[in-house]
Nucleic acid binder design. Structure first.
Length: 235
DNA sequence: AGCCCATCCTGTCCGC
DNA sequence: TGCGGACAGGATGGGC
């Protein structure tokens, strides 16, 4: 998402769509927000299979093509049709429904989130958008592997060192994933129509063996989502 | 609060 | 080859 935002920002700021000038492309949680000069915004949620490709070729999964005045376009594809877009006069109301952005979050804030939800399992808690914005299924697994913490541990059982590690790895993993332009497991493509490279760095998500100890990676459902962890490296 | 389930859709993969 | 079931970067709403 952040990769798509950065690329789109470079490509479409200054262009005109239906007579309105684009002045910025922002991201809040997993929402992509295109701001217009008149104060309105075009908001996207790509869910699991959405793609936004600048000057892409329309396919049978194309839901909408946004044509800019200069002849370029933005193609919105979505195989499963879970994604959506809408134009809003003020985007602030929607943006306020989310917790802090992980890369801007300080340690005290993170600690207080865990204290607010002592009984929640750590993986679903990391993915809860109202608590922390923008962490999804892949990165929650990878963050917890890097931190040596099993995904079903309740927040209250984490010791100070574990909390610190998780906090640091949230930043580390997300920053590296952004640097490598995201993770393409199935449908993800960036705004240039290219796959992300972070998938090569996945240590547990859809992996068979642990890269550290060679143990078989455990896969289980936690609150309805697939979770992956190493039974030896994660406690 | 926290978990479970169904739901929104289309597609792939795996086992029989 | 066909068929059934599981599963899929997400999120919501209802029920217990």
């Amino acid at each position: 998402m952040e990769t798509i935002r950065r690329q789109l920002s470079q490509k479409i700021v200054g262009k005109r769509l239906s007579g309105k000038e684009i002045i910025g492309v922002r991201r809040r949680a997993k929402l992509l927000i295109i701001d217009f000069k008149d104060g309105s915004s075009l908001i996207f949620h790509l869910k699991l299979t959405g793609q936004l490709i600048f000057n892409g070729e329309p396919s049978r999964h194309t839901r909408k093509v946004f044509n800019f005045k200069d002849g370029s376009c933005l193609v919105f594809n979505d195989l499963r049709k879970f994604g959506w877009y809408k134009i809003v006069k003020k985007s602030k109301i929607i943006e306020n429904e989310f917790g802090p952005e992980p890369l801007k979050m300080d340690f005290e804030t993170f600690k207080s989130i865990l204290e607010k939800r002592p009984k929640a399992k750590i993986k679903p808690l990391l993915m809860e958008q109202k608590m922390i914005a923008g962490i999804g299924n892949i990165y929650s697994d990878e963050i917890l592997f890097a931190s040596g913490v099993r995904p079903f541990r309740q927040a209250k059982t984490l010791n100070k060192a574990e909390i610190k590690k998780i906090f640091q790895n949230i930043k580390k993993i997300l920053e590296k994933a952004i640097k490598l332009k995201g993770s393409s497991v199935e449908h993800y493509l960036d705004a240039c129509g290219k796959k992300g490279n972070y998938v090569k760095c996945h240590k547990v998500y859809r992996q068979k063996k642990c890269s550290i100890c060679d143990s078989k990676i455990t896969r289980m459902k936690i609150n309805g989502r697939s979770a992956h962890f190493c039974p030896k490296c994660q406690k």
